[in-house]
Design a protein around this nucleic acid. Structure first.
Lengths: 230, 230
DNA sequence: GCACACTTTATTGTATACAATTGCTTTTAT
DNA sequence: ATAAAAGCAATTGTATACAATAAAGTGTGC
């Protein structure tokens, strides 16, 4: 009755999450074409499953399905990038506040474990995985806030953020400075809602400003795309 | 190039939107089982299409797909209902503010047309359609706000609101009082962002309080369900 | 008569086969 | 030689066939 296994575990979920994680960790670059047969062969499933997975990924905007043309890892536009971060700045501070108000010792420990993992990945030179874990840190906060609906939104926003970072990150700026995450955990552990909210807000603003959302209107991949227009 | 036809128009979208509208208009009650063959026959398509449509509807929580059991029109729990309205109260006032800041004459006209349609449906006794239009009024505001990402969230929240209203509406309270919508349009037409935000907030609070979110933990449909537990 | 086990049936999950659309290559005519 | 058009190859969209799972109905034993 009190089982946490709320997951029905669909079958195509395996390929779906695997692809999602690959995108998250920047192993699949924006614009990469995902052929159905190709993916089907890799995972040893039929195209039926792959299509189902693609549909899920398309819904959270991780890939673009162009009818009769195929699925491509999404390339969020500048506008989309701005919108995603504006949405995050609207939702997540509130989420952090609720999380701080509700957090138990166990929750705080869970967050600290996340940060540790992040450190380890970073020290191991696996910046892709570090980025992924950095995202799941935010998702964990939303989970603690006990607002599943908003948490779901945050989840998709963070997934898209990963693509945005892949496209628009200014490499000169430090992105994964975990000081912000540390401070956030402390505030949450102390049930300091006000401070958690403010820390999250400033953290997101920092993240937002570490992106270059001015120029580079479209990362061109092929000549064809350059001439076809968006 | 400047085409607004952003819609790829998938094929199963027809059945998906048709089902969505039926749920929206309360022609399909929460808990109703949707058999794949049954739906496939109705729309003269294969189960492949139906499954694809079901997946879309499940993603926006309009239906629940229980593995190996089938698809059912969702029955939002009390908790879910609260969460949905809390999310709306977080997102929509901000959306209304942006909409008011950006609205053109054309936008205002569009909103007024929506209200007119709503009135007509109500006078024609088609309360289901009136409810549907009432929802699309909110979506239209999100569209005007020019925040597609948030608009998408609002869209799903409103779809779920329709189910919530079906389950928890206190019939004694007036729901579709369009005075609120009228005032909102006026504020938006006058580009009064502050007022639009506040009107939206109070409108949502009114809506929220027109629901009975205290008792009635589970609307029982069959004896079996009553005994099986959630 | 009741309970338990087995069989049967209906429904969903997955794979494959077929149809349609797209982009590319080749051919042909100017 | 170039450009247009027709055919070709490849990929996606859809339908159908098969497999697996779960529910329900049936029969037997106590």
């Amino acid at each position: 009755m009190t089982k946490t296994a709320q997951t029905p575990k669909g079958s195509g979920d395996r390929v779906s999450s695997s692809l999602a994680q690959a995108i998250h960790e920047h192993r699949l670059a924006p614009g990469t074409k995902l052929g159905e047969d190709e993916v089907a062969e890799i995972y040893n499933v039929s195209r039926t499953i792959v299509r189902s997975a693609f549909q899920s990924l398309a819904h959270i905007k991780l890939i673009d399905i162009k009818r009769n043309h195929g699925a491509y890892v999404a390339q969020p536009s500048l506008r989309e990038a701005r919108e995603v971060f504006e949405a995050r700045e609207l939702l997540e501070p509130r989420t952090a506040r609720s999380a701080a108000a509700l957090a138990t010792q166990e929750d705080a420990d869970s967050l600290r474990r996340h940060i540790d993992e992040e450190h380890k990945a970073l020290n191991a030179g696996d910046s892709g995985r570090a980025l992924y874990l950095s995202g799941s840190f935010h998702i964990e906060i939303a989970r603690i806030a006990n607002q599943r609906t908003i948490a779901e939104f945050v989840k998709t926003l963070i997934a898209r953020s990963s693509l945005i970072i892949a496209l628009y990150w200014r490499r000169e700026s430090a992105l994964c400075e975990s000081t912000a995450h540390h401070a956030l955990v402390d505030a949450i552990a102390n049930n300091d809602a006000e401070r958690a909210e403010e820390l999250m807000r400033s953290h997101l603003v920092d993240l937002h400003s570490a992106l270059d959302l001015r120029e580079k209107p479209m990362p061109i991949r092929t000549l064809r795309e350059a001439l076809a227009g968006e």
